Amino acid sequence: MATCKCVIYYRVSTARQGSPGLGLEDQTKVVTDYLGDGAWRLVGEFTEIETVKSANSFVSRPELHRALEICKRKRATLIIANLGRLSRSVRFVNGLIEEGVDFKAADMPHADKFMIQAHAIMAEWERVQNSDRMKAALAAAKARGVVLGATGPANLRANIETRQKAAEAFAKSVAKVFAGFKAAGLTQRAMAEELNRLGITSTRGGQWNASQVGPVLKRLLRKPARR
């Protein structure tokens, strides 16, 4: 069996290290499972400590640049645990493709770099959609007289109502996806993992965990109140 050279690149955030799928231990397991068939020879391994500024900045990833240099020099493939740990920015992924280095996402073993690019486009689209929904909800709240950032019982009530409406709108937007998960008999943890794999962001624009899936399921099961 021919052996291919590879360089592993991990990215972790000290603020979110404990979140499912985001920690170094989780990424290591995914990559180890992917490389377990013996077809790869490791020639480099790098871990990036994420900062707010470097989250989607190609120039602010020194470890990534070191990994790419070795890939070019050794003609190796860059291995990442999943696309979300690289970036959810299409511009960032395009920049990596332009570097001329082959790369693979361990959670999408059969995807080539162009399929990964398409996946990044969908992930970015979903993030923009979530952002637009939130902006629309805030604009509607302001139009109803809610003073954003202000305190007091009246404004607190209005803000709660705004959040509830935004949550309802989000639940409706992913209703078909969750219906498919339920039909397949997935657990809440498995649903969270699948949502992350598909690049669908949570209500706050981040990755999912099992505790975030529960409230959405409850909203979808809740019968509308009679008027």
Score class of each variant (00 low, 15 high):
81 A>C: 14
92 F>K: 09
106 A>C: 01
74 K>P: 03
104 K>I: 14
97 I>F: 01
102 D>H: 12
100 G>V: 06
92 F>I: 09
75 R>T: 02
75 R>W: 02
105 A>G: 07
95 G>T: 06
78 L>K: 11
95 G>I: 00
85 R>G: 09
85 R>S: 00
96 L>T: 04
95 G>W: 03
100 G>N: 00
107 D>R: 12
73 R>V: 07
74 K>F: 09
80 I>G: 07
83 L>E: 10
87 S>F: 09
87 S>G: 03
89 S>T: 05
76 A>E: 02
98 E>R: 14
89 S>D: 12
81 A>W: 14
102 D>V: 01
73 R>C: 12
97 I>S: 03
77 T>M: 06
93 V>K: 05
108 M>L: 15
90 V>C: 07
102 D>T: 13
100 G>Q: 03
97 I>A: 01
84 G>P: 02
102 D>M: 11
73 R>H: 14
86 L>I: 07
79 I>L: 07
76 A>R: 01
85 R>W: 06
70 I>C: 11
108 M>D: 15
106 A>F: 02
89 S>W: 15
93 V>A: 03
85 R>N: 10
91 R>F: 03
86 L>T: 10
104 K>A: 10
73 R>Q: 15
97 I>R: 04
88 R>Y: 00
81 A>V: 03
92 F>D: 15
106 A>W: 09
83 L>M: 12
103 F>I: 04
94 N>Y: 05
84 G>Q: 13
95 G>R: 13
97 I>N: 01
88 R>V: 00
70 I>G: 12
92 F>V: 01
78 L>S: 02
81 A>S: 15
80 I>A: 05
81 A>G: 15
105 A>T: 04
109 P>V: 05
83 L>P: 08
79 I>E: 01
86 L>N: 09
